[in-house]
Computed example of a mutant assay.
Amino acid sequence: MQSYDVIVAGVGAMGSATLYHLAKQGLRVAGLDPHPPGHAFGSSHGETRIIRKAYFLDGNYLPLLERSYALWRELEAESGKDLMQICGLLCIGELESEFIAKLEGASQEAGLALDRITSAEARALHPAMQVPEDQVIYHDRDGGYLSPEKCVATHAARACVHGADVFAGEPLLEWSADGNGVRVRTANRTLSASKLILTTGAWVMPEFAKLGIPLRVRRKVMFWHRVSEAERFRDTPVWIWAQREQAFYGFPTLDGTTMKSAEDSGGEYLEHADARDFGIRSEDDAALTPFLRTAFPGLVHEIDRAKTCLYTDSVDRNFIIGFHPEHPQVLLTSCCSGHGFKLSSAMGEVLAKTVQSGVLPPETAFFGMR
């Protein structure tokens, strides 16, 4: 039986980064996943993911964001891969909206100065976008996007360079406490370790449910629409636009013919992660295309392609990290709630520290099980 210091179950955004940081510190580590790193069956895919300092959930995330930016650049330098593009971010909403109030509150809490700009200035930054004069617009100059498949694959590959084992195509079938350690079983092997970290995304829900912590998984759809006058969509900021109960986001064109966008609000809640439907239904696009035709009049046309992903939501959308109350050698994580990818480089470092020290770092104490 192969033995390790730490086994990481789930080599997605958080798992791959955790594996990397542990291996880089010289620990004997193994990662398990049903699919190769960078796959499209969980939450960490779709060509682009937003990275931003303009946060509207909680100002406590800003130190982690600052660390994430630094770690993404370090990973780029180590690997020679281009992973993060900074092109700015536009946050748009109505004056009295919850979105704008939370954005301003979290920014003030974190001491972050955002640039409030006019609709004319927004059009100068994004020539295709038509923003009414009555909208509040903030420009986050540090906003941009990450390439999620490349980020996950790079973290996993560099972990292997530093000595990690990655068993792709081998989902965790069961785990059990084994004295002061753990034993895990896949279809192909049984492994032992001193510690186990569960970074299995939506598939961690049953473990939290046993502890009375409710999580919900949502099926979300990302769309790529065909655009005309593609030069007006190149080198533009990423954008987030909240309208009443709905919120939408989008990216610059990467291929010169399509623009990726999605609705962040809404989504179909599933009983469990494996109930996800990979097909695209008409109701998936009930709000997005009508919105795009208002925001980009005459320039956004039919859907070119679409992909589904999963959001695993906690009650307050904050991350949850904690040791199993009966088995302290097992670290449970539910990190994303639809906004975690950007932070995964820093969260890998946090999880690596936590599993070794036995406590969450003070700056992340608000992630603890409550």
Rank of each mutant, 00 (worst) to 15 (best):
M1E: 09
S3L: 10
Y4M: 07
I7E: 04
G10R: 06
G12S: 11
S16T: 05
Y20S: 07
A23K: 03
K24I: 08
D33A: 13
P37A: 06
P37F: 02
A40P: 00
S44T: 12
K53N: 10
G59A: 14
S68V: 09
S68Y: 06
L71R: 08
A77C: 10
A77W: 06
E78N: 07
S79Y: 08
M84D: 02
M84F: 11
M84G: 01
C91R: 05
I92N: 02
E94K: 06
E94P: 00
L95A: 13
S107H: 14
L112C: 09
L114C: 13
H126A: 00
Q130D: 09
E133N: 08
Q135I: 06
D142I: 09
L146K: 00
P148L: 03
K150S: 06
A156E: 05
R158G: 01
V161Q: 13
G163F: 14
A164Q: 02
L173P: 01
G179A: 07
N188R: 15
K195R: 15
L196S: 03
L198A: 04
A202P: 04
V204C: 05
E207N: 07
K210C: 10
P214S: 13
P214H: 13
V217A: 14
K220F: 00
K220N: 02
K220Q: 14
V227L: 06
E231M: 13
R234E: 06
I240M: 14
I240G: 04
W241A: 04
Y249W: 10
F251Q: 01
P252I: 00
L254S: 02
A262K: 01
E263R: 03
L270F: 11
R276K: 12
D277H: 10
G279W: 02
R281W: 10
E283Y: 13
D285Q: 03
A287S: 13
A287G: 07
L292H: 04
F296R: 01
P297H: 08
H301D: 10
R305F: 02
Y311T: 01
I321C: 09
G322V: 04
H327C: 07
P328S: 12
V330E: 03
S337R: 06
G338Q: 12
G338K: 10
H339W: 11
S344I: 04
K353L: 12
Q356P: 03
S357T: 15
G358S: 08
V359F: 11
P361L: 11
R370H: 12
